[in-house]
Simulated scan of single mutants.
Amino acid sequence: MTDLDPNDTPVLAAGCVLWRRSPLDGTLRLCLVHRPKYDDWSHPKGKLKRGEDPLAGALREVAEETGFVAVAGVELSTVTYMAGGRPKQVRYWAAEAIAGRFTPNKEVDRVRWLSPAEARNRLTQFRDRELADELAAALRRG
Rank of each mutant, 00 (worst) to 15 (best):
V74F: 06
P87C: 13
V90E: 13
E61D: 11
L30D: 01
L114D: 08
L123M: 09
L48W: 13
L48C: 08
K37W: 12
A97S: 09
W113P: 03
A119G: 07
P36D: 09
K45T: 14
A13M: 01
Q89I: 05
A99H: 11
D133N: 08
H43C: 13
K45F: 15
G46W: 05
T124P: 02
H43I: 03
N105R: 04
S42C: 13
R112N: 09
A95Y: 03
A56T: 09
T103W: 05
L28C: 08
S42W: 04
A132S: 10
S77H: 05
A14K: 04
P36A: 13
A136I: 02
T2S: 12
E118G: 03
A83F: 11
E52N: 02
R141P: 01
A137N: 06
R120P: 00
P54M: 10
R110T: 10
V33T: 15
D25L: 03
G51S: 07
K37L: 15
P6I: 12
R110D: 14
K88G: 04
G142K: 09
T66W: 01
P10K: 02
V108F: 01
W19F: 14
A94E: 02
C16T: 07
P10D: 05
L18V: 15
A83P: 00
G84V: 08
M82N: 11
